[in-house]
């Protein structure tokens, strides 16, 4: 054991799956797992956001704790004994993946297929999906009231895509309610507060006030919600339209890194280009200044770059 006292107050040592690991004080169990090379599945976690620990797919067993704990949020403590691959952990992760897979469209969520396989999740065992809700029905759901059905179909959050502006779409049939867009729009980054979680329980949803269309809301089209969405529920309209047309092809895309030319902040841009057209714009999450965030100009104001005479 280490006998150097100077490090004691700044690091903690814990045991993960039988191996000791030392991390800085304040690090989470997830940080410790990653430091050790044992990545855990995460959905609602974003390294640029305050952990909300809502999805529960990263849960681990901590000795002495009655229930499983979210590794993304729980701080590592000296002497903690953590297990990431017990029967209980695997079961809860499997069920979380099944619950989401059976109620949400995860077709554009990266990584999920691999986890489904790893944890042997079978979302189809809850029965065929219930028919999608008509437009606006989920927005109007009254807390404390629901229509139960007969159990022969599995309730889902399926509903029509919200297309109410030229910049981005909201496909809440793909929403796992991870709160990341709300955090990005609110106190974590943008401080615009255009969206919040509304309703309750299975009817909880991301919403503007009274489900107003985005142009009538406080939205400033920074698109920072798109940047953190883990499932593709929030998407550039350009990407959405191309996917609808069947022309979206990431293997045909190049990414050009550049600096936004609009103002002096100098945000990093990644221009995703397909067929010589910009199809979406991102900013690297690990960039020291922007942390993945942009404003409306950097995110959506790229048309001037490709004002080609032949398209006039």
């Amino acid at each position: 054991m280490s006998v150097v006292p100077v490090t004691i107050s700044h690091t903690v040592e814990l045991e993960i799956d039988g191996e000791n690991v030392r991390v800085r004080e304040g690090a989470t169990i997830l940080d410790a797992c990653r430091a050790q090379g044992r990545d855990q599945p995460t959905l609602c976690y974003g390294d640029t956001l305050t952990p909300i620990n809502a999805c529960r797919v990263c849960v681990v067993e901590v000795e002495g704790s009655r229930v499983l704990v979210p590794s993304c949020a729980r701080k590592a403590e000296d002497g903690m004994v953590v297990r990431t691959d017990t029967e209980r952990v695997r079961h809860s992760r499997k069920m979380v993946l099944e619950f989401l897979g059976s109620s949400v469209d995860l077709t554009t969520a990266p990584n999920v297929d691999g986890w489904m396989e790893e944890y042997e999740a079978k979302p189809e065992r809850y029965g065929p999906p219930a028919p999608p809700a008509p437009e606006g029905a989920r927005d109007r759901a009254q807390a404390g009231h629901h229509h139960a059905g007969d159990g022969q179909t599995a309730a889902t959050v399926a509903q029509p895509v919200k297309v109410d502006n030229e910049s981005y779409i909201r496909d809440y049939a793909k929403c796992i309610l991870c709160y990341k867009c709300v955090e990005g729009c609110g106190t974590d980054w943008q401080n615009t507060f255009a969206i919040a979680v509304a309703g309750r329980g299975f009817d909880a949803r991301i919403s503007t006030e009274y489900a107003a269309p985005l142009p009538d809301s406080a939205c400033v089209y920074c698109g920072n919600c798109i940047a953190v969405c883990p499932t593709g529920a929030l998407m550039f309209k350009s990407e959405h339209d191309m996917r609808e047309d069947g022309t979206w092809d990431e293997s045909e895309q190049t990414v050009t890194e550049t600096i936004c030319s609009y103002c002096g902040v100098g945000c990093s841009l990644e221009l995703h280009v397909q067929d010589n057209s910009i199809v979406k714009v991102t900013s690297p999450l690990d960039h020291g200044i922007t942390r993945g965030n942009l404003c409306v100009k950097g995110r959506f104001g790229y048309q001037y770059v490709q004002n080609r005479p032949d398209e006039e």
Partner: peptide, 18 residues
Amino acid sequence: FRDESCGQCVPCRVGTVR
């Protein structure tokens, strides 16, 4: 329980429905 779940975490939000 389906009605009263706050909807924050997946095990309760969807588990109470299933």
